[in-house]
Design a protein around this nucleic acid. Structure first.
Lengths: 156, 156
DNA sequence: AGTGAAAAGATTCACTT
DNA sequence: AAGTGAATCTTTTCACT
């Protein structure tokens, strides 16, 4: 689908991953292209799906869900579509922020936001009730966000 | 610093967390305000730091760092500023995407991007070399992103 | 890829309710 | 605080080089 990214694309992606409201002209000056070339490339990167979304990152402390929990789960591996069903469930849960299917002691790792520990207890109870294919769940309480973001390096 | 968010603020944040390039007029129609009121609130939310950043989310598979690893680490808790020093280090590492300080079996959980397993091995070796306060490190390889994002619910 | 032009939207302002 | 209207800047898309 997406052809390889050239040096200009990577430079543009490096910038918009930090601030996607930058003026095309500012980006153009940084990377050494004209503003319209930057616009064209941004449109192509969006249409290609290289840029999946442009989102506001909000301060967790400003919300009603200031706590974060990281849950490790074991899933019933025998069951063919256990993972697919969990994905569908997670997609609909606003408090389930991220889920990774991993190798190791656990099969799934989820990052979950909650109002407080009681609320997290409710969410995890609901998770187990809605997903019998989840066998076990262990939780780490996040005491501090040391670094957050979704930045992925693109420069070679 | 930040006063409480009202219903309009929350509705706006709910939308811009999914798409921060929405037209002010579109947001206005959704939440029941005028476009200029939406603009004013967005400016205030940005100035307040409630909106911390507006960023492009890119497809990991389109980059040269398509793999993800989740590392659990034990840190020297005796050492007073061991965590602060690790934070400073992590902040400068582009492949270290997220770090959480947690309770439980491990003290730190990091999400790390890498080109391949060899590259991850290099990164983790460098991490241990640069941070002697990290005593032990266990890694989960991400086989699949089940859900990603930084969305935090804001509606009551 | 660059330039220039036209239309649409963002941003900031002053003013009103 | 919210709405309106005006001035200015930026984005977006187009045709053209």
């Amino acid at each position: 689908m997406a052809e390889a990214l050239d040096t200009f694309d990577r430079a543009i992606l490096d910038l918009v991953q930090k601030d996607c409201q930058l003026k095309a002209e500012t980006i153009a000056d940084e990377v050494g292209l004209s503003a319209s070339a930057v616009q064209r490339r941004l449109k192509r990167l969006r249409d290609n799906g290289v840029i999946q979304a442009e989102v506001a990152v909000i301060n967790r402390k400003a919300t009603s869900f200031p706590m974060t929990f990281i849950a490790g789960m074991e899933i019933e591996r025998d069951n063919y579509d256990a993972l697919a069903r969990f994905r569908q469930w997670a997609e609909k849960q606003p408090n389930v922020q991220q889920v990774y299917y991993v190798t190791g002691q656990v099969d799934l790792i989820a990052i979950i936001t909650a109002r407080d520990v009681e609320h997290y207890d409710d969410i995890s109870a609901q998770l187990m009730a809605d997903n019998p294919q989840i066998k076990r769940m262990t939780t780490n309480v996040v005491l501090r966000d040391v670094k957050t973001g979704l930045f992925i390096p693109v420069e070679e």
